[in-house]
Amino acid sequence: MTGTEKGLRLSFFRRRPNISGIKVVPYLFILPHMLLLFIFVLIPVVWVLVLSFFHWDVFFPPRFIWFNGFIRTLREPLFWKSLGTTAFYVCGHLLFKIPIAIGLALLLNRRIKGRILFRGLIYFPYVVSMVTVALIWQWMFSAEYGVINFLLSGVGGSYTKNILGNPKLAIYPIIALGVWKNAGQTMVIFLAGLQGIPETVYEAARIDGAGPWKTFWYITLPLLKPITLFVLVISTLGSFKVFDQVYIMTNGGPGYATMTIVQYIYREGFERFNLGMGATASCYLFLILLSITIIQMKFFGKEAGYQ
């Protein structure tokens, strides 16, 4: 009698602090992360929205201008031009990177000697900073001493062509750099996808007499659809933010030929001190990213049965 009473009391005393502790503990656990998130992400998001309703050039106090900033940005030819350049970059990036990555993944999915080494070599550019590789590429594309011109001259190109200095051509090395740097990472994602396809599916196809091409077209590709959607979404978001390589290789030039949307925001905010306009352009960029993601999820998501 007393024994159970004692036991009850003991467990009561021992557990109570624990139970009340459990209620507070998870909040303490997430607190540091949430605090930093709040300060460095959520406050700036609200701030960027508020800022875009103001005209503010640092030298004079901010002035509330309603939606005029949004309207003015839409009237800026350079805003549209940089959006167009970014869209062109994104399309080029996706169009080349995804098929190349699927091809590489198919090649390296087989059991062959040295595939870890090959994977490592192809993946390596992704690990290195964009600044570093953009500098190397800029040097390779140098007009007088660049190795690219030397290699091109071997196949009949003119020897001292200044590709990065040509407004019509400068965007292509920038696209190529993005594809080259990220294809390895995308390949690894597809490799994970390929390994998720059970061997029995291929066996069934073989028994039905499907050749390698048919197997790829009717089996592998459809089964890769969910992962392709995933790659499509993150690659679009990632490549829309293109900044570092343009900043290094051409700094938006020649003229404004390779200026991207993030470059535009950077220029408005940090070079022309037009903080309101920079914020407005950021808002537009956010709207674009959001709607592209939603459209891709809706459109391709249904097809992939992936909602």
């Binding site: 998870p26 992400v41 700036p44 701030w47 960027v48 993030v262 925001i265 903080l275 956010f286």
Partner: peptide, 27 residues
């Protein structure tokens, strides 16, 4: 609120630093 906080964290994946660099600089 665990769902709310987790979704809030996931939602920040949609907000790259490039979008908020001007207010982060001001802050």
């Amino acid at each position: 609120g665990h769902k709310f906080f987790f979704l809030l964290i996931l939602a920040t994946l949609m907000i790259p630093f490039q979008l908020t660099m001007i207010p982060v600089f001001l802050l």
